Each structure stands twice: as C-alpha cells, then as structure tokens.
Simulated scan of single mutants.
Amino acid sequence: MRRAVLSADGEPSAVAQTVVDSAEDVPMLGTHVDATLDWCVGVGRTAPRVGGGSTPALWEILAGTAAMNVSAARMLEPHLDALSILHEAGVDLVAGHDEWGIEQVDAGPDSSWGVFAAEGPGARLDAHNSAGTWRLNGTKPWCSLAGHVSHALITAFVDDTHRRLFAVGMRSAGVRPHRDEWFARGLSHVVSSPVDFDDVVAVPVGGIGWYLSRPGFARGGMSVAACWWGAADGIAAALVPPASSEHADQLALVHLGRADAALWGARATLVEAARTIDDPRPGVDERLLAERVRAVVSDAATITLAEADAALGPAPLVSDHDHARRVADLHLYLRQHHGLRDIARIGRAVASVGR
C-alpha cells in the first residue's frame, strides 16, 4: 500500500507510520464502528495537533488512514478535531485539565467524540440556562455516528441569532438519534442523521460565537481535505497496474498521469499550507487559506475519480469490494465541499483586497 507522505524528505513521520500500521490490526476497520472508534480513542491519546510543527504528521495520519479505509478516516477526523477544539478551550482530558467542567457530562480520556455544528431547514437546537445548568432542546441535523460516540461538541442557539458550543453526553436520557434515515451507499457505516434533544444537560465550551471565530476552525477544514487527498491517492493506486502492464496503451498512461499530476499538486498545496500553519506569518488569512486548500484538493480528488472511472471501466466497481467502497465513500465525503459556493467565497475574498 502506498503511504501518504507530506514531509520534505519523502519519508512518513514515525508517529504517522505507527498509527497507520496500527489500523491494520483493527478488526473490520471502518465497518465495525465500535472497534474503529475504540481505535480512534487510542490514536487521540498520542496524535499530534495542527500547528507547532506537527501539522504534516497529523495530516499524514488522516491521509494514510483514508488511503486504507475512507470510513475509518471519516470517524477519526472528527474525534481528533474535537480533541483539538477542547485543547483550544483549555481542556486536555488525558492530562486532567478541564477549565469548563465537562466532567459534568461524564467526559474523560476514554470518550469518543463527534462534532455536530451543521444547520438545516426545519431543525433547530436551542440551549437555555436554568438555575446555572444549561439544557438542550430541539433537533440537530447531520450528526455523524450519533448512535455510537459517547460524547459530542455541538452548537446550539442561545438566543434568536447567536450560537455557542456545548459538550454533551450522547448516552444521556433525552438524546434520541433518528433511525432508518440513512440510505447512502458511500460511508454507509458513518450514519449522519438528525438527533432530538429533550432537556439534555450540556456544558458550554468557549464563549458565544467562539466556535466559529477561533483560529482552529479553518484548520479543521484543511484536515478534512487531507482525508480527501489520502482517499484519492488510494484510488489512484489502482491505476498503476494497468498502466504498468506490457499491454498498456497510451490511454492507460494518460489516465495515470492526469491523476498523478492532480494529486501531486494537491500534495504540494497541503505541504505549503502545513508550513504556513506551523510557521505563521503576519497577515495570513487562514480562512482563505483553508478555502483554497479545500478547493485544490477537492478538484484533484474529483479528477482522480473521473480518471479511475475512465481507465478501469465498470469491472472494479462491481467486482472489487475495496475499490468500489473507496470510490463510493469518497464521492459522498467530497460533498462536504460546497462547490461553486465555496469557490465564490475565494473570489469574494480576493476581490475585497484587489488582487
């Protein structure tokens, strides 16, 4: 299996190598949800965080996992993101630091985490403070693995317009994930359904509006892009054998070449972004950086999917379980990128500064 590498010397970091190797020992990685989440919790105890020189190693962990199994990366990324968010807020459950008192919802070093911050029509989650205790009521859409994770960081409205982040125990009374509403063929084991909350105790993490305004918000979006890149690299690996065959024609080489060039450009973009994060310079807009990174990587992954379809035809989509699953998973995962709307934000940002 090819390794996703972002380091300058072309060798994976030791921590990334160790984590990806450990994934090979997980029974039914990505399909046995509880076993995969247990592995995610273990990874989270030692995984590096974005920034401070550790960004390439973290992104190699995510990309290497996605190259192996996209669903597993889709489970690992939000768990690590939640730990990073908590760290930004002054909470380190492994070290025993808890500035916000999330032990009140029984969170600890063995917790598995989701991050639920999406909004949608017809669904609203409100938080009310009653006698010093915050409680959640309403419905939150797009809650991935809500029936499996032990805890979540979740945004809720504290008035008509403002939202705040809360930690909540997902096994609390009054938490009811919707059932039988996930018909996806991609990421079929990463069920993302609405969840109803009925007077559920929660603990605030950060102030009003902190979740969206914190520095790490944009960095989390780039970590998702690292997963896309790793998943696409895993698909591109299937183009090598037919292009290496003595019977290969020019088209097989073209398909491989186009995918390779696109992924090389995406890798270079991730490398530059990691350098920018780890060695921050004045005036860098990390939100714009994240939009650019996600656009470049999304385009590269889309090109790779198209080249794989053209080069390999329908056979592996119907006869190769791993390839078919990887393709379906990545197609759905890429829908976290909002296409032209996200590109428009780049254009708006560039136009506003006149360059």
Rank of each mutant, 00 (worst) to 15 (best):
R74Q: 15
A4I: 13
P12T: 13
A73C: 10
R214V: 06
R335T: 14
R325E: 06
F217Q: 04
H128E: 13
V293Y: 00
A232M: 07
R325D: 06
S188P: 07
A273F: 01
P56T: 10
R214H: 06
P204A: 11
A67D: 04
A308R: 06
F217M: 05
H97N: 15
P194D: 11
A66V: 09
R287P: 02
N137G: 11
P109Q: 01
L212W: 09
P194N: 12
R214I: 05
V297R: 00
T31H: 10
A4E: 05
R185M: 13
G101D: 08
A173G: 15
A4N: 05
C227R: 03
V284T: 15
G101K: 12
A57M: 04
R179V: 11
G90Y: 10
F157C: 11
L312D: 08
A152I: 04
R74H: 15
T304G: 06
G147N: 08
E24L: 15
L76C: 03
L334P: 00
L165F: 13
F217L: 02
H255M: 04
L317C: 05
W134P: 02
V350S: 11
D309S: 13
A4D: 03
A82S: 11
A328I: 05
M222I: 09
R2D: 14
R214T: 06
H321N: 10
V168L: 12
A117P: 01
L332W: 08
V70D: 03
